[in-house]
Amino acid sequence: MQNTAKQETKTADLLQLGETAVIHSLSTTELSVKLLQMGCLPGKQITYVRSTLGGNPLYLRIDNQFFALRREEAAQIAVHHDSSL
């Protein structure tokens, strides 16, 4: 689960509106256990679809599912850009 990829990674809360990336890994916290269980898995595509007026929580698409995650929840997810995209 460590960050070993050569590609540049960032956390999902830093995605730009409309940006799509691939989930690289999750941190080891209680929050990540929850996120994993809900189907937020490495290798899946994640898209920042929209947000509320306050900019929090985020409306995210993860493969074909949709989630509302707070920024600090999204920060548990490391993402990178897939070169094939």
């Binding site: 929850k34 809900m38 995650l69 707070r70």
Partner: peptide, 10 residues
């Protein structure tokens, strides 16, 4: 305790 939202939007 942890406060979280992590909500599925069905």
């Amino acid at each position: 305790e942890l406060s979280f939202l992590a909500l599925e939007l069905p």
